[in-house]
Design a protein around this nucleic acid. Sequence first.
DNA 1: GCGAGCG
DNA 2: CGCTCGCAACGCACG
DNA 3: CGTGCG
Length: 294
Amino acid sequence: METSARIAGVRITHPDRVLDPVLGVRKRDLAEYFAAVARWMMPHVRHRPLTLVRCPEGHEEGCFYQRHASRGFPAEVDRVPVVEPDGATELLVVRRRRGLVALAQVGVLEVHTWLARIDRPLRPDRVGFDLDPGPEVPWSAVVEAALLLRERLRAEGVQAWVKTTGGKGLHLIVPIARRYSFDAARGWARRVAVALAAAQPQRFTLEPRKDARPRRIYVDVLRNAYGASMVAPYSPRARPGLTVSVPVDWEELATGVDPDAWTIATVPLRLRQQPDPWADVGRRGQRLPVSESR
DNA sequence: GCGAGCG
DNA sequence: CGCTCGCAACGCACG
DNA sequence: CGTGCG
Ligand SMILES: [Mn+2]
Ligand SMILES: [Mn+2]
């Protein structure tokens, strides 16, 4: 058993360390996964500040969040100076494939991206809707909820894209022009969520606590804030089997998908066999129907 | 996973 | 020299 | 302000 390996040009120590006992995923498998999906994942990651979930001894042994470089952090991951609302800092950005692969070396199981790009971190270029079902909500109802939200967004005049979360919910994103503050974008998203909950109170709620809404879906718009993030397209999740957040076509979603079947073992083949449903995301930044534009 | 620093 | 230990995020809503 | 939440 070697103590070190080179994968896609990146040094991986202890390549046979097991990060997920369920699938038997080793560090080398994770590194090879990132190398395999880089072509599709990088466009959604490249220009964005990152929030990472690291589990160096596997997700069963505990994980922690990381937003800034620590001593010894891989040089393949870029540090970018940013002027924040209060003071200056340095954020992490993966600009190249090797950076993505290097994340495996430090035990990153989840890659979360901000909803703004690094060059203008105060101006979101996406609005995110996070559908969080209560424990009693069947998958079919989560799909129906996403389709209802999509209709509502259409009525607002915007187009949305959808992906699985790697968990039990769905994420919708709306690419927008970078002319709104996070407060304005979140305010609009909250109004959409409130209208949805008013129209279908048996399905939707703005109550986050699961025990207070076992049969309803929490429409979480709080990801739309400075420094907040959502799990990136094609990121694994730190859970048994290392499921993956997978972009899907609306048609495919309505026809029926099994999100648990998408893991780091199965997603690379899917990507090689069919077009990426998010390939055309954000070609144009959409305008939001808000009075307060900036 | 890394590295400062203690025994 | 080997090992242990400290460390690795943050913004919003609510009361 | 602290606490819960994601
Ligand atoms: Mn969620
Ligand atoms: Mn959520």
